[in-house]
Every structure is written in structure tokens, then in C-alpha cells.
Amino acid sequence: MRSAIGLLEIKNITKGILVADAMLKAANVELVMAQPLCPGKYVVMVAGDVGAVQSAVRSGQAAGGSDNIVDEFILPNAHASIFPALTGCTNVKEIKALGVIESFSVASAIIAADAAVKAAAISLLEVRLARGMGGKAVVTMSGDVGAVSTAVRAGSDVIKESGFFLDSLVLPAPHKNLHEVLY
């Protein structure tokens, strides 16, 4: 059961593979993601009960060494819509207002997405993770203008202190053809 998720974002691929192995050996967790991302980083995400995820992340930190960790998180109660948004599997039929949060790290974008979807009645469209974007990550969402504004503010605020926040945007009425090029 995916009650919690934990992620380590590593500076390089070899350490990332080592971290993934250590995390899986440390606790009974499900491997959600272990892959290289731009610019040569490696991301490992696990899911499971809170204690197991905490144990796995601690073991990954120890294996990778603090000098190699770009960012990290443990979300004890991740919103269910995070998972389809991470894989780009959300069914986008219409974009009402469009909200976008841009971040310098994968971990902070996922944290922002979780905070956004918990703050307002919006639909997460995608959490795009550093593929072809120089290590940046982007969260997109849609809903009514007020809800999107609230969600973007909540998601942005939760990561501003980390120094990974880059920018955000709310388009109250995006052009109908914009939907086709976004997804």
C-alpha cells in the first residue's frame, strides 16, 4: 500500500544506483522510480508504510553521502493523484484555468504538487521531472481560476524556503489550442 513516498535526488548516476540498492535492502518498500534524469542526476522514489519509507530514505542517504544528495523528501500521506501525474497518465480533456509551478529540483516539484492538490479542488495534469529541461521540474494543474490560484500559491510557498522555487504562473483562460501542445 502506498501510504507514504520517499525520494532521493542524487547528483550522479553511479551513486544513484547505489542509493536505490540500499533503499530497497533497508525496508519493505515498493520501488516507484529509479532512473537517470537531466543533467546526469538520478532519482529514486519508494512507497510503503511511513516507517519503512523513512528507513529506506535514511539508508539511501547514508549510502549516497550528503555531498551527493541534491534534494529529498518523505511524504507520509501523498495525495493519490501524484502517481498518475508523475507518469503523465492523467486524462486531460479540457484545460480551464492553467496553473504552472517551475522548480530547480524534482523533489521540490513533487512536494509542490502534493501541497497544491491538497490545498484546492484542482486536477493535477502532470509533474514533469527534469527530462530535457536541464534538471528543472514543472507541475501543471487545471481547475477554476480561484482554485488554481490557491493551489499554485500553496505549492509555491511550500518550496520557496528550500531555494529550489523558480517561477509560477496562472493563466485564467488559456487559448484552446494550448492544450494540444502541452500534452
Rank of each mutant, 00 (worst) to 15 (best):
A4W: 00
I5V: 10
L8D: 04
E9W: 00
E9G: 08
E9S: 03
I10Q: 05
I10C: 07
N12W: 04
I13D: 12
T14N: 14
G16W: 01
G16F: 02
G16D: 03
L18K: 14
A22L: 04
A22N: 04
M23K: 02
A26K: 02
A26G: 05
A27S: 12
A27K: 06
N28H: 11
N28T: 01
V29G: 02
E30L: 12
L31S: 08
L31D: 06
L31T: 00
A34Q: 06
A34I: 00
Q35T: 12
P36L: 09
C38Y: 09
C38E: 14
P39A: 13
G40L: 08
K41P: 01
K41Q: 13
V44F: 02
A47R: 07
G48A: 02
D49Y: 03
V50I: 11
V50L: 14
G51Q: 05
A52S: 15
A52K: 07
A52F: 01
V53P: 03
Q54C: 11
S55A: 15
A56M: 05
S59R: 12
G60F: 01
G60S: 04
G65E: 08
G65H: 05
G65F: 05
S66T: 06
D67F: 10
I69W: 00
F73E: 02
I74E: 01
L75V: 02
P76S: 12
P76F: 04
A78G: 09
I82V: 10
I82K: 10
F83L: 15
A85K: 06
A85W: 01
L86Q: 07
L86G: 12
T87S: 15
T87I: 05
T87Y: 10
G88I: 00
N91V: 08
N91M: 13
N91R: 15
K96H: 13
K96W: 05
A97Q: 06
E102V: 05
E102H: 07
F104T: 12
F104L: 15
S105E: 06
S105A: 14
V106W: 02
V106G: 13
V106Y: 08
A107S: 14
A107K: 03
A109L: 04
I110Y: 03
I110L: 13
A112E: 07
A113K: 09
A113D: 06
D114M: 09
D114E: 05
A116W: 00
V117C: 13
V117H: 11
K118M: 11
A120W: 01
A120H: 05
A121Q: 13
V127E: 13
R128V: 02
L129M: 15
A130H: 08
A130L: 09
R131C: 14
G134H: 05
G135K: 09
G135D: 09
K136R: 15
A137T: 04
V139M: 13
T140L: 15
M141R: 10
S142A: 13
S142L: 08
D144S: 14
V145C: 12
V148M: 10
S149K: 14
S149E: 14
S149P: 01
A154Q: 06
G155N: 04
V158W: 02
K160M: 12
E161A: 15
S162D: 09
G163K: 05
G163C: 08
D167G: 11
D167C: 07
L169C: 11
L169N: 09
P172M: 06
P174I: 03
P174F: 04
L178K: 10
E180K: 15
L182I: 07
L182V: 03
L182S: 03
Y183M: 04
